[in-house]
């Protein structure tokens, strides 16, 4: 399952479906809204491009780390502290591929997928700056999606 959506996701169901023949390891990454003295977090996506990028990243990770399954769900809209923002669930034959594949997917999403976060605070709102602010890691140039 690859999705950009406002709804939450049933992680238990994802784990259940990832237990397929050949799977020996499942790694779940669940990024949640941190209690950084905020009231809520607002997430926005360039949805059609974000989904294409997530599909591309999932496919690359499957190939590079021999993953058996990849689920990526990135949420948008207003989220409260503790709610799920990004769920990545991968399965592989062995732990090494599952751990490394999960990490690869997360870091590539942070660098390349057009999603933005705004922290809503009592004293004003604040866009979270990207980790790649000067063209170093953000969306490759001239790449056909």
């Amino acid at each position: 399952m690859i999705a950009v959506q406002t709804d939450d996701v049933d992680i238990g169901d994802l784990i259940h479906r990832a237990k397929q023949p050949g799977a020996g390891a499942i790694v779940l990454f669940d990024g949640i809204v941190r209690d950084d003295d905020i009231t809520e977090m607002e997430l926005e996506a360039y949805e059609d491009i974000a989904i294409k990028k997530l599909e591309q990243i999932a496919e690359r990770a499957r190939h590079l780390y021999h993953l058996l399954s990849v689920d990526i769900i990135h949420r948008t809209g207003r989220l409260k502290v503790g709610e799920n923002i990004l769920v990545i669930l991968v399965s592989a034959g062995h732990r090494k591929g599952a751990y490394e594949g999960s990490r690869y997917i997360l870091e590539t999403i942070k660098a390349e997928v057009p999603v933005w976060k705004k922290e809503l605070r009592r004293d004003g709102n604040h866009w979270v700056p990207g980790e790649y602010p000067h063209n170093t890691g953000n969306i490759p140039l001239n790449e056909e999606l």
Partner: peptide
């Protein structure tokens, strides 16, 4: 994606879909 210098030279065409945004910050 186009670089800023490319955007100076590329001419827009009928039906083009253009998007402008700051560095991404998801995850």
């Amino acid at each position: 994606r186009l670089s800023p210098p490319e955007a100076e030279h590329v001419q827009v065409s009928e039906g083009d879909d253009i998007a402008i945004f700051p560095p991404v910050a998801g995850g």
